[in-house]
Simulated scan of single mutants.
Amino acid sequence: MATRPLTGTKVFLILVAFFGVVIGVNVTMMKLAIATLPGTDVDSPYAAGLAYDREISAAQDQASRKWQVNAHIERRADGNAVLQVEARDASGQPLTGLKFAGRLERPTDKRADLAVGLAEAGIGIYRGNAASVAPGQWDLVIEGDAKGERVFLSRNRVILN
C-alpha cells in the first residue's frame, strides 16, 4: 500500500479545519450564552448602595413593631399556587386595612418572576393566587404597605412541588 507524503498543503488544510471547528464552537457557545443571559441583578450598583441605609432603618422599624406575620403557599396539581398571609400585631390582634403584595422570584432567572396580588379575605388574613407556577425553588417576597409606606418586608426561600 502506497502512502502519500505529508505536504505543506495538507498541513495547511488540517490547521484551517482545526481552527475552523474551534472558532465555530466558540461562536455558537457565545451566541447561546448571550441569548440566555437574564441580565444584571441591579441596574445601578451605586444607587443600590445608597439605598442600603434606608433598608437598614426600615428593617429596624419593622422589628420594633414586633408583628407576627405567617405565610403559607401551596402549589396545586393544576400549576396554580395559593398564598395566604396572616398578620397580627405585637399583642396578637389581627392587622386589618393593610395592603399586602406577594412575589415569587426565581433565584436564577428574574424573567420567571411572578406577582401575586393579595386581598383581605378575613380579619387579618390576606389571600392571593398565582397562575402557572413551575415546580422548584422560589423566593417568596411579601411586602405590606400602610398609607403608601412599606411597613413590612419578608423574603424566604420555598420549594414548590
Rank of each mutant, 00 (worst) to 15 (best):
L83V: 10
Q84E: 14
K66S: 07
S91N: 05
E74C: 04
Q84G: 04
D78S: 03
V85N: 05
A77G: 01
N70Y: 09
A77W: 11
R88C: 03
R65Y: 06
D78A: 01
D78C: 02
K66I: 04
A81W: 13
A81L: 03
D89N: 14
L83F: 07
A71W: 04
R75W: 14
A71I: 02
G79F: 09
N70V: 10
Q84L: 07
R76E: 14
E74Y: 08
V85W: 10
R65I: 01
E86Y: 07
L95I: 03
Q68Y: 07
Q93N: 15
L95G: 08
R88D: 10
D89H: 05
S91Q: 13
I73A: 04
R65A: 05
K66E: 09
N70P: 00
G92N: 09
N70K: 15
A77P: 00
G92Q: 08
A71T: 13
D78I: 03
L95K: 05
N70I: 09
N80H: 10
I73S: 05
A71S: 14
G92R: 06
V82W: 13
V85I: 15
N70C: 04
L83K: 05
V82N: 11
A77D: 10
P94I: 04
D89Q: 07
V69D: 04
A87C: 05
Q93H: 10
A71Q: 15
A90R: 14
G79H: 14
G79L: 06
P94S: 10
V85R: 08
A87T: 02
V69S: 02
A87R: 03
A90C: 02
L95F: 05
Q93K: 15
E86W: 03
A90T: 05
P94L: 10
A71P: 01
A71N: 06
R76I: 12
D89P: 01
I73D: 12
S91W: 06
A77M: 09
P94Q: 08
K66V: 01
E86F: 01
A81E: 08
A71D: 08
I73C: 03
Q68I: 04
G92S: 11
E74P: 00
L95W: 06
Q93D: 15
L83P: 03
K66C: 04
R88A: 15
D78R: 00
R88F: 02
A87D: 07
Q93Y: 08
Q93E: 15
V69I: 10
R75S: 06
G79M: 05
Q84Y: 07
Q84T: 15
D78P: 00
Q84F: 05
Q93C: 03
A81Q: 09
P94N: 14
G79K: 12
V82Y: 13
V82S: 09
R88V: 02
R88S: 11
I73M: 13
A81C: 02
A71E: 12
R65G: 02
G92F: 11
E86P: 00
V69L: 05
Q68F: 06
S91E: 09
A90Y: 10
A87E: 07
A87I: 01
Q84I: 14
E74H: 14
L95S: 07
Q68C: 00
I73P: 02
P94H: 09
